[in-house]
Write a protein that binds this DNA or RNA. Structure first.
Lengths: 198, 198
DNA sequence: GGAGTACTATACCGATCGGTACTGATTGCG
DNA sequence: CGCAATCAGTACCGATCGGTATAGTACTCC
């Protein structure tokens, strides 16, 4: 089995460029020609290297999770429930108030036509996974006494994520990092505190 | 000036059908053929009656504001800041957990390609207007002693709207009304209470 | 009832969509 | 050096996009 001519570009580096385009215009708003232009490769190279548009989007989501959005995983490993919530929200603000603005998990494919369905399903599944991960993190905190007994951890996780999504939407609308951090301050000031006496 | 043959359909009733399609698939995800099929009219009739796709979307936004999303205005007229926040969030949950799910102001056109730019700008402007309206409502509440002195009303308005947006996104992902209302409970339990003593 | 108007419906417009053959150059391996 | 495989580039595919011209029909007014 001969090896043949090697690829002349770096897969991940070009994937980063695709990621930026997807973040700016969403899955449906991005044309193949936008991608090939930004990535500096031709369509056949794109198909050979990544599959098709949907597969490229999926790979971009992976890269996004591991790179710009790695604060999500970081949050799950934070020492306290409060720190997890703060890491998540601050990370979202910092990420989404720089160009390209907006969270790929939210605006990548929120409502689509039929041909955007796979992309939409995929981002929805990833949002669900994030919700579940935070829920479990809060459940652990509850068991550790890091959250007051009786806390509705599912509703709390949903709240934190709802704020995180909402902040990213506001960021795309032009809100500044300072404005959004003040909102995070407000949310954190109301975050349930562990029971004083065990 | 002769009147000519009258229109055979009701403008607003067909606009409601267009609104439903836009809510399901967003501006870019909706094709003209989807619209004409759902509305039961032909393309030339659509153009004569509403202008073009962007104008139809704009009219659908108006109708959405005045109809399904009228709870937003209702919230601004609520007697207290807390009631305003509750009306907004509960209204969002109730609206977005029924088919078609999702808020048109959010998922109608969040990230788009070039030809979706006008629609995107329009929903962004309407979100901004909502933010400003709630901010002013909270400012009034502050002046009336309905919110504690020193409250960051802008951050509070941003928080409530962020939650509202986030809830609509979670609703499109399949969250139930009950789950989301529990989240609203949580947010309301942390809502600032008026100073006990004036 | 005739004139004029605005309707409906079909067919069509150029442009662009996602995706693919085809071509010729370039590389690694035997 | 020759073989085989993959590369980059162009041209092209059918389908669909938003939008419109054309044609035929149903209505109101005088």
């Amino acid at each position: 089995m001969a090896t043949g001519r090697p690829r002349e570009f770096d897969l991940d580096e070009r994937l980063d460029r695709a990621l930026e385009v997807f973040r700016r215009h969403g899955y449906e708003g991005t044309a193949l020609s936008d991608l090939t232009e930004a990535m500096g490769i031709n369509k056949p190279s794109l198909y050979a290297a990544y599959g098709n548009k949907a597969a490229l989007f999926s790979k971009a989501l992976d890269r996004y999770s591991a790179g710009p959005a790695s604060y999500v995983q970081e949050a799950m490993n934070a020492p306290t429930a409060r720190a997890a919530a703060e890491t998540l929200m601050r990370g979202s603000v910092d990420l989404n108030t720089c160009e390209p603005r907006g969270c790929l998990f939210v605006q990548g494919a929120l409502a689509t036509g039929p041909q955007g369905d796979p992309a939409r399903a995929e981002v929805a599944a990833r949002r669900d996974a994030g919700q579940e991960a935070l829920h479990e993190r809060f459940e652990r905190a509850l068991a550790e006494g890091d959250l007051p007994a009786g806390t509705d951890t599912e509703a709390l996780a949903r709240h934190i994520w709802a704020v995180t999504y909402g902040l990213s939407i506001q960021a795309t609308g032009g809100a500044t990092a300072d404005e959004l951090h003040r909102t995070v301050d407000l949310v954190l000031s109301a975050f349930p505190r562990p029971d004083a006496t065990p």
